[in-house]
Design a protein around this nucleic acid. Sequence first.
DNA 1: TGCGGGATTCTTGTATACAAGATAATTTTT
DNA 2: AAAAATTATCTTGTATACAAGAATCCCGCA
Lengths: 246, 246
Amino acid sequence: MVIAERGALAHIPCMRDPDANDAHKNPHLIEDRIIHAALSGRIAPGERLGEKELAEIFGVSRTLVREAMMRLQARGIVEVSARRGWFVVEPSVEEARHTIDARRALEVGMLVTIGRADAGMIRALREHVRAEQKAIAGGDRAERSYLLGHFHVCLAETLGNPVLASLLQDLTTRTVLIAALYQSSHDAHESCGEHGGIIDALETGDTTEAARLMDVHLRHVEKALNYRSVSSRLNHLKAALQGSAD
Amino acid sequence: MVIAERGALAHIPCMRDPDANDAHKNPHLIEDRIIHAALSGRIAPGERLGEKELAEIFGVSRTLVREAMMRLQARGIVEVSARRGWFVVEPSVEEARHTIDARRALEVGMLVTIGRADAGMIRALREHVRAEQKAIAGGDRAERSYLLGHFHVCLAETLGNPVLASLLQDLTTRTVLIAALYQSSHDAHESCGEHGGIIDALETGDTTEAARLMDVHLRHVEKALNYRSVSSRLNHLKAALQGSAD
DNA sequence: TGCGGGATTCTTGTATACAAGATAATTTTT
DNA sequence: AAAAATTATCTTGTATACAAGAATCCCGCA
């Protein structure tokens, strides 16, 4: 039932509180788990999430599952097809561009406007990158995917803005789904290196340079997408039938 | 029952479809109405939104109301107090800063990264500002509040990014609530003028200048807040009892 | 063998019943 | 009359029942 007690899930703060593993006591558990699984690449775009199925997994009635799905819907992570089921979103090529553009705007803007970081912040960020490297070296794909995405959330948190962190969590989750959908060729090692470069710039107080590097980084993310090969059953068929959507 | 058939609500695209006024056929009607009312200043921060009450207004059961509230909760517009009720959020001073900082990051970043506008876009934006001026001159407070907030959503839409537009709708709604809560002294006419200035810069293709003006504009919004006077009953009491929260 | 059509099963959509707690009102007690 | 305890009322929290439509399966038929 429980996907993981610690390890990968240890990043989520509430995971230390035993109560938090009970969907009755922690109303956000279901969403948190789904977001985490998506961020870790354990839930694929287009995957069906049955209400009954989830209700059994979390030991609650469909009501609570449904409420969680409503919140995830508002966050752009799942969508519902009438009387067919809930599905993890499969952003179209256009939506994918809009999502990554939104991230560029948000993260570049963040570094330009509130990008001042003290020594403690730099230390925390370097720690995160170290964890990324470890996951890459260790071959832990889920942890790697999670940490590479979470870096951006971590950055917003470290800069002291939970509102931005929350927005970025949703956008990075969508980005991970997009990368899975369009078979991203992006190299984890390279991504991790770019994270380090951004921190370097931040450390010297050069927010403009940090912003530029972030812009480049996110452009790389988009460049690495292959808009021709869509790895989902449905979308694959759609693309095959209606010709090039590019 | 129906708050308004047209006029103020005519901005919302779905309002033209008669079906869309039926909460059964348009599952997002309840949220849309609440967002619109908040943006128009017709719903105050701290206001209680009873499930039963809303169910009667929209002619549906509590179930659908509840689902709408879940989505609004995920969007940071309402919050629930266990077995007491749903309330429109009353952001703390810190949350208010984070929200406006997030907007600065997002909107400055947006103009810097995707701020290129052609003649058609400029025309649409000028049209919007003209509507703002009309509402200001006509003394229509609700319309004025709505349009001044909606300008930023309109900007994102015009620049062609619905993802950003969606994020901005939620952030501007929160900003309107914040302005109401902290009795903003911001002058509508000045705000409208600043919108025009941003469009001017955009028209000349100077995205850097447009971004700078947006930064200034949003700093004005924050500067106009009075963090000492909180216009909500509860927060007022809280502030009075626990001393300066600033 | 290939194809239509109808029953069946499965899934969400919506309402409702009842539980549990919070608030308000009332009564009792001092 | 003031304070405390009790009851009543009101609100959300959760589960469940049933409706409605989608997808599938299976059987009859050409």
